[in-house]
Design a protein around this nucleic acid. Sequence first.
DNA 1: CCGCCGCCCTGCTTGC
DNA 2: TGCAAGCAGGGCGGCG
Length: 271
Amino acid sequence: MPELPEVETIVRGLRSRIVGTTIEGATVRLARMAIPPAHASFDRAIGGELVTGVTRRGKYVVVRLGSGRSVVTSLRMTGRLVVARRGAPEHPATHLVLHLAGDAELRFSDVRTFGRMRLVEPDYAWDALLGVEPLSADFTPQALAGMLAERTTPIKVLLLDQRRIAGIGNIYACEALWEARIRPSRPARALTKPAVTRLHGAIVDVLQRAIASRGTSVDDYVDAEGRRGSFQNALAVYGRAGQPCRRCVKGRIVRILLGQRGTWWCRRCQR
DNA sequence: CCGCCGCCCTGCTTGC
DNA sequence: TGCAAGCAGGGCGGCG
């Protein structure tokens, strides 16, 4: 499922391929996947727009348009954004296609149809509820400590809260806690200062390494060119229930439920 | 503000 | 072997 590193990889791919091209129109095959501005139709509103940039905010892909509007896409679990030539074989669950000048198109597919592509007006603060970007200068050990203070929530549940830190999903929450040697169920306020510092470093480190590996493809994820990432080969805990810990070796990875989410960790070296 | 729950959806896994 | 139930999960709205 696309989290920050996967979305960042998609964004970089899109940036090199669609910036400077014009969106001639759109075909919306499944209406609920496309959210138009008020009192407008998605396909008519987007026709003729120039793509001026592609950025990321949390797990959202933001395509900036010449008019100042933006196309904000949430991929949720199984969404894909792929640039392809018109007529090339397409994913069977392609629900929305942006037709680009020339013979290219941007395809939005999603087996579970949880994803959304939203056309937002200039200056609309669509991301007002999103928290700090973990790879920005604003994300400091002190900022992290401030989020954890007084909170009884399990630290792993808190890492998934997009209102605090934007972009961490289930895979990287598990991996960062393993790297920091912290038990996922620990109440946030129970983390010592050194533990908070380790967690901060681990979050930044695991996200950067995952970006360098072009993301994690455990199931559906592919980048803007349709290629898989390789960070699944570097995972320490996610999906590794029953296998030995890659660090302490003697510990076994177990899977528990936290906040209704599967959570993997090493019983021996995470405390 | 906080925490928790259910819903959305389809494909894969599990169990009889 | 075949079928149905269960499970997975990010974001969001609703509730207390």
